[in-house]
């Protein structure tokens, strides 16, 4: 099981900034191990962020995103105490959802 995400969400004026750290290998499928065998690709494919249940960001990722990705974005609206939920799913079907409230 993947480690929890580290999420920070803060409002400033009318926009909310969300910063997320995800724990993931993000293996490109291009690397070889010590024995010369290709290490299979293993990466986060879909990311969805919801604000009180409403989707504010939906992304499709590929192998160009680095290991342990850091995602930062802003959206309009959002108030202290609102719920932010982030879900990712990788190409193996592993998934993880974590939540926080806007500070």
């Amino acid at each position: 099981m993947a480690d929890p995400m580290k999420i920070r969400a803060t409002t400033l004026g009318d926009s909310t900034e969300v910063k997320v750290l995800m724990s993931h290998e993000m293996e490109t499928g291009q690397r070889k191990d010590a024995q010369g065998q290709t290490i299979p690709a293993w990466f986060i494919q879909n990311v969805i962020v919801t604000w009180n249940g409403r989707t504010v960001l939906s992304a499709q990722w590929g192998t160009a995103v680095s290991k342990n990705p850091f995602l930062s974005f802003k959206f309009k609206g959002g108030a202290k105490g609102d719920r932010i939920a982030i879900s990712w799913m990788d190409n193996r079907g592993d998934k993880r959802t974590d939540e926080t409230v806007i500070a």
Partner: peptide
């Protein structure tokens, strides 16, 4: 600096 993945280790 912003978003240091070290925080993942700190949390764990």
């Amino acid at each position: 600096q912003d978003g240091n993945p070290a925080e993942l280790w700190e949390g764990r």
